[in-house]
């Protein structure tokens, strides 16, 4: 299950970055991938739609949102947790 969450999140991020999923590295930041603030908001929308979850994110202060976007790995982990919480 956790692999599929990871693959789906990477697919969403890759689509925003206009890259092949295989070219997205887990330690990259969104900035590394060339994703700007609008791309980020769109990615979060796609994640919410794909997993039917609510992502706690405010574009006014990304660093203080409960949702860690500091790297691809951080986003994947945060989404995995939200999906787990949803099941619980």
């Amino acid at each position: 299950m956790s692999t599929s969450v990871k693959d789906k999140v990477i697919q969403i991020i890759a689509e925003q970055a206009v890259l092949e999923p295989g070219d997205v590295k887990m330690d990259q930041t969104l900035e590394d991938l060339g994703i700007d603030s609008l791309g980020l908001v769109e990615s979060i929308f796609a994640i919410e739609e794909a997993f039917d979850i609510q992502v706690p994110f405010n574009a006014n202060d990304p660093s203080e949102s409960d949702f860690d976007i500091s790297s691809v790995q951080a986003i994947v982990s945060a989404v995995e947790k939200l999906v787990e919480d949803q099941k619980a």
Partner: peptide
């Protein structure tokens, strides 16, 4: 709501704790 620039509690211009 879609843009995620809206505050859920108050409009606090110029204040460090502003959130939309």
């Amino acid at each position: 709501e879609g843009l995620r620039v809206m505050s859920k509690d108050a409009c606090r211009p110029f204040s460090a704790n502003r959130n939309g």
